[in-house]
Design a protein around this nucleic acid. Sequence first.
DNA 1: ACTGCCATACTTGTATGGTAGTATGGTGCA
DNA 2: TGCACCATACTACCATACAAGTATGGCAGT
Lengths: 220, 220
Amino acid sequence: MHSAASAGSIVYNRLKQQIVSLELSPGTLLSEKEVSLTFEVSRTPVRESFVRLAQEGLVLVLPQRGTRVSLIDSELVEEARFMREQLEKAVIRLACEHFQDDKLAVLENNVSMQLESMQQQDGKRMFDLDEEFHRILFEGVRKQGTWNVIQQMNAHLNRSRILWLSTDPHWDVLCKQHQDMVHAIRNHDADLAEQLMKEHLSLSISNLAVLTKQYPDYFK
Amino acid sequence: MHSAASAGSIVYNRLKQQIVSLELSPGTLLSEKEVSLTFEVSRTPVRESFVRLAQEGLVLVLPQRGTRVSLIDSELVEEARFMREQLEKAVIRLACEHFQDDKLAVLENNVSMQLESMQQQDGKRMFDLDEEFHRILFEGVRKQGTWNVIQQMNAHLNRSRILWLSTDPHWDVLCKQHQDMVHAIRNHDADLAEQLMKEHLSLSISNLAVLTKQYPDYFK
DNA sequence: ACTGCCATACTTGTATGGTAGTATGGTGCA
DNA sequence: TGCACCATACTACCATACAAGTATGGCAGT
């Protein structure tokens, strides 16, 4: 994204990716020095990335004590779902009224790629395509800034989604819903589209309670 | 807020306040060195604050060239209004269903203080009380995380609201709407409450076009 | 065995010097 | 006059040294 070649941005992007993908477990102790050694840069850019991650709530800095990957906050996850539901319902309604023509093709292309990935059992790719599907929706109604802000909460939501992935992806249902939503947009059926979106998102993390019991030390 | 006593946080909070209040005009050139001199700290904590402000889009860092207070992005302002409308409509509906008892009293107290401030023509205080009114709403339905995320977009929205203040505050209408919303919550009238909120927020920045013409070099 | 103290090895926070890239104004040349 | 060039004075970026707070383990005294 901010493909910035600066050392600070590189460290930030890499750490963020590792945290959101759970490559770095919630609760893991970091340290400016340790990270600076693994990335072979000085503490300054590392510290810079910590500041940014802390602002997004992905790490917790305890002055003079240490820095650790933040635990998943169940309340934040639920709020993220709530927030996405409200905004995406509104966005897909807008999309039914008016949607950038070229983006509609992109959306359909995305869905067809989802079908491919599903047949290939490529969960990671499905996850990314799912994210992109929703991003395209926001772009198509010129609400990219809104999508960017959502990403902040999404970082928390996604960590729990990835945990859930390991239990039961059921991509088939999600993919079908994506298809139906595209049809609804094409037919300008706002009420149907909104209903589909609502169901789609509620499906995303219905059983948070299960995860908190299965991975107790990942959650706050 | 983050009452953190660290130099970095102090600089960050102060700069943010100055930017959002337009004490620092959009487009103003900053510089690590200059700011470090005025705050009498080294460049490190200043740089830290720049990173945080840049992430919120309040400043624009041009590598090796300089850092400037970002111009007000009309699209972001409109998106912020859109985002608030969707989320606050949903939130006030929730509030009509169930609202923390003690918070309702706080809300009414807030409104009465608004009446005071209006009589005293204290625009600044009204602005702050208005912000607090909405924050309390989110807190009352346990959506504080959502409110915090909104704040990021709000920083942009508020700059244009402050510009608008200088032209026509018409606090009387806004204050009346606040009162009506509290009544609607008390009467559990979700439909009315949502309608009131929608009108309330659309009133907040109806005439962005006027501002862009009146202050052309403040906008992107 | 237990308690209190302190040396030590961490942590993040801050200051500062050096590096590389960029804008600018002046100078020499055509 | 106008254009190319270059010295200079900025900028953000990074590395490093030092300061200050915190946890910990061992040791001495009871």
